[in-house]
Amino acid sequence: MTGTTTIAQSLPVTEKPRRTLWREIVKSRWPYFFISPFYILFAIFSLYPVLFSIYLSFTEWKGLGPIKFVGLKNYSLLFKDSVFWDSMVNGVMLFFIYVPLQTLLALVLAVVLNSKRVRGFQLFRTLIFIPNITNMVAAGITFRLLMNQENGLFNILLGMVGIPPVPWLENVWAARISLGLLIIWAWLGWNMVIMLAGLQTIPGELTEAALIDGASHSQAFFFVTVPLMRQVILFALVLSTMGTFSLFTEPLVLTNGGPMRATTTPIMAIFGQAFSNFRFGYASALSYVYFAIIFVLTLIQVRLGGRREA
């Protein structure tokens, strides 16, 4: 008797999870209905294209006319595609040019603004954030004018103190660094706000205690603040990594990917294949390989940075 009761009692328990999910959905049908514009739009404009391009990546298609199935041809072609792989290398170089500097600057600025000694904290925060909401096309064109080798304001100012003209956009490395400057200008404020948000979760007593114990301000920064900010810094780094490889507007406007394709990013290469060469199948295959690479990179970053005790 007792045995059967136990079984009978345990049965509903195992079945419960399945039913509750559906029940929960039915129970919350009105809230789901009211947020449905999001997932309907998401399905049409994000999910469908993502799935359709899996299919496209095995085909040749100009955007018009028949879709020709070609199997793995696109994937085998792309391993020899020097433009795409060079663009990945460009992404790596750009990453090292500006991401460490930007992250450090963002953290330092955040710490400075977070200390209670800075007056007009909100004003500074806004000023540093404003470039991020400035239209990138306008900003890019302005930077291009400022960086003109012959008539740009930067070189005119440098000339006044006797520095010869810098070929900001006329040389492979200079162009990459110039692009890095534009990106730092545009994205520093955004990273700083993330850091500020993180800092505000750290109790001030910890730094205070370190200072009282005799640590200098820089020691307190590196040995107290930075370790506590680990997760936040990681978050900013991960977003910066993905952002670097998918840069589009900034290089398009500032350098159009030149000189010698040195500032062509993977997204620009993919965009060019799709919308300038009309090779939608091939561009889809590139997108998926690109996605896989970024995904693995991000996992590695999370893995390396996410360890509790390192």
Partner: peptide, 20 residues
């Protein structure tokens, strides 16, 4: 979290603003 991560990556792969 892996799924969320992939959504973020996908979103980052999405079209950036093109010049007006």
């Amino acid at each position: 979290s892996v799924l969320i991560l992939s959504v973020i990556v996908l979103a980052a792969c999405g079209p950036a603003a093109t010049p007006q």
